[in-house]
């Protein structure tokens, strides 16, 4: 492997991990509060679609990003009301929402862009970090669009809030023992609604990264399992922020490796690399890699 290839590999690993970093961080917060959003996939898709439409109509990727967040709000709200207020099965509602969003965005895309056209839409340009981006080997790592740095900033902020603030402690307690939180006078429902909404907005950012950040176009069902991969990252990360971030980077690297295999001439089957994240997560939940500590009230509706 030449140094140049290593540099490209590092940079593309990071780039491919960014949508996962957004979505997985959002899902982590929500799962720590006790709500599983199978709909991360649909929420990312809604974000990708909203971002694409917004950017195409206004010509500004920044306004596109705002549209991505707007587009995800009804989806996140639906998920939250169904699972928290109506106490519906979290898995089933999530899968239903994914089917619904896939259908709606495909219909909307055909109406808006016309069937099968692949128009390029305005997207973000790279924001190279001065000095660092000129370094050998790691230089390409620092030639990402601004959203990459936004992801890192949000992750650091989430880490700080979760560990150092009262809100963070309460939020984690809601996922472990909601009854205790209710007894302490905090609203379980409000906290969980907030957590799902946060997961939705983060997913929208991740989805928008795919459409207006990375490839500057929208295609039907373009998230193609990225949402499930983000959920898998949270599981493999054992519901801890640091480990989840590492999982996202690892999954990004596995994806990047798929594209580099031909260049490297390695005999690893492509399918094995695509399967790797799910396999690792499965081994992890099977207790073969480290210990898993899911929040105790995960996926359980709260009855006062």
């Amino acid at each position: 492997m030449t140094l140049e290839l290593v540099a490209i590999f590092l940079a593309s690993s990071f780039r491919l991990a960014i949508p996962l970093l957004f979505a997985a961080t959002g899902e982590l917060v929500s799962e720590r509060a006790g709500v599983v959003n199978m709909s991360i996939e649909g929420m990312m898709l809604a974000g990708a679609f909203g971002g694409a439409i917004g950017a195409a109509m206004t010509g500004s990727p920044l306004l596109g990003l705002a549209c991505a967040v707007l587009a995800v709000l009804p989806v996140a709200l639906l998920q939250s009301v169904l699972t928290n207020t109506l106490r519906a099965n979290q898995i089933v509602t999530g899968i239903g929402i994914n089917i619904l969003v896939l259908g709606l965005t495909t219909l909307g895309y055909r109406e808006f862009f016309g069937a099968r056209s692949r128009t390029t839409i305005p997207g973000f340009d790279a924001w190279p970090v001065p000095v660092l981006s000129d370094l050998p080997l790691v230089g390409p790592l620092f030639q990402q669009i601004g959203m990459a740095w936004l992801a890192i900033a949000i992750i650091l902020a989430v880490g700080a809030v979760l560990t150092m603030t009262g809100l963070g402690i309460t939020l984690r307690a809601v996922g472990e023992n909601p009854q205790a939180v209710a007894k302490a006078g905090r609203s379980v429902l409000a906290l969980r609604h907030g957590a799902v909404l946060f997961a939705g907005i983060m997913s929208a950012l991740g989805g928008a990264f795919l459409s207006i950040g990375d490839i500057h176009t929208f295609t039907e069902g373009m998230t193609n399992g990225a949402g499930y991969l983000a959920i898998t990252a949270v599981i493999f990360g054992s519901w801890k922020l640091g480990r989840t971030v590492m999982a996202c980077l690892l999954f990004g690297a596995a994806t990047a490796l798929q594209f580099q295999l031909p260049a490297l001439g390695l005999g690893i089957p492509n399918a094995l690399l695509i399967m790797l994240p799910y396999l690792l997560a499965f081994l992890a939940v099977a207790g073969l890699v480290g210990r898993q500590t899911a929040p105790r009230a995960l996926a359980q509706p709260y009855w006062p």
Binding site: G96, N98, L102, T106
Partner: peptide
């Protein structure tokens, strides 16, 4: 008519039934 419409219907059915189960 895009067959995605069937996805929309199916999604609506699932979401409605899951939500009303309560």
């Amino acid at each position: 008519v895009p067959s995605a419409l069937i996805d929309v219907l199916q999604g609506l059915i699932v979401v409605t039934i899951a939500g009303a189960a309560y």
